[in-house]
């Protein structure tokens, strides 16, 4: 905004923007549920950042003397079927998931926003074509789409991101489109049209900033879904190829040894559940507070 309005204004805008940021932040703290969610997210983000410091040992090193052992002084959460330290694998698994999930959501938000804005603003044939295509993608059960895509392009970190982006884009495009359809009828858009503004200016300068709020909340929820999906893909054997530490994959492996080492399956489950729940609590709290605020 400041870039468009020239230099004179940036100086006086700065405090208000900071205040707005704090305003948004304090809104979340008003909601107890949202605060709990935020705390869980911050916890996992910190774990991911400081993984090398926190993890007691190398997540890939195997100890053939300790296979499927329970908790001990040496291995706090025990070891898996290859004698790897579960705690360390959990900690490093945070990194995988917290990089891939936001990345894929970012990608689908970008693509989805452009598609949604275009379809919504121009309407007519453009809208019809774009939306029919997206409807076709949305007609797929999500997991099925993952199966097809991963079966086609093979399991890898990049392909998981591609698959999740592909699956997530239509939803975002639809959201942005419906918001755009609403905003398009506002008088300030008409005012811009009567000024003869270029459609790109109207789409990206006049409409996009007003789509921001719902889009952010939706994106947050989608980070939760993405983590959900990465875990599920890992569990189904369609996620990251071994030996990368990956929570879903850890559950799948430990599932085979549930009768000998039952707790091994519990830790990754708790990890992924807490992270997704945290994100959803946060997004929900945010949504509730922003609607109440308005």
């Amino acid at each position: 905004m400041s870039a468009l309005s020239g230099g004179t204004k940036t100086a006086e805008k700065r405090p208000s923007r900071l205040r707005r940021l704090w305003g948004g932040f304090s809104i979340i703290l008003e909601s107890r549920v949202g605060t709990i969610g935020l705390c869980i997210i911050v916890f996992w983000v910190l774990v991911a950042i400081f993984a090398p410091l926190l993890a007691p040992r190398d997540p890939l090193s195997q100890d053939s003397d300790a296979i499927n052992k329970g908790s001990s002084e040496q291995y706090l959460l025990g070891t898996d079927q290859l004698g790897r330290d579960i705690l360390s694998r959990l900690i490093f698994g945070t990194r995988t998931i917290l990089v891939l999930a936001p990345l894929s959501v970012l990608a689908s938000v970008t693509v989805g926003t452009i598609l949604g804005l275009t379809a919504g603003y121009f309407g007519g044939l453009v809208d019809e074509v774009v939306m029919r295509l997206l409807d076709a993608i949305m007609a797929f059960p999500t997991i099925l789409l993952y199966l097809i895509i991963i079966a086609a392009i093979g399991p890898s970190a990049v392909n998981v991101v591609i698959a999740i982006t592909f699956v997530g884009t239509p939803g975002i495009a639809r959201l942005v489109r419906s918001l755009t359809l609403d905003i398009r009828t506002r008088d300030y858009i008409r005012a811009a049209q009567t000024r003869g503004e270029h459609p790109l200016y109207i789409m990206f300068v006049e409409i996009l900033p007003n789509v921001r709020g719902p889009l952010i909340i939706d994106a947050l929820l989608r980070v939760g879904y993405a983590i959900f999906a990465i875990g599920t893909l890992g569990f189904l054997g369609l996620g990251l190829p071994p030996p990368t530490p990956d929570w879903g994959g850890m559950v799948a492996e430990a599932r085979k040894f549930i009768w000998t080492a039952p707790l091994n399956v519990l830790w990754p489950i708790l990890a992924i559940t807490s992270l997704v729940v945290g994100l959803n609590l946060f997004a929900d709290g945010l949504r509730e507070e922003t609607t109440r605020y308005q």
Binding site: M1, S5, R186, Y188, P209, N210, R212
Partner: peptide
């Protein structure tokens, strides 16, 4: 709905 809620009064007149 006549003013864009995302921009300041000054920007919109300018």
């Amino acid at each position: 709905s006549t003013l864009n809620p995302s921009f300041s009064v000054g920007y919109q007149i300018a």
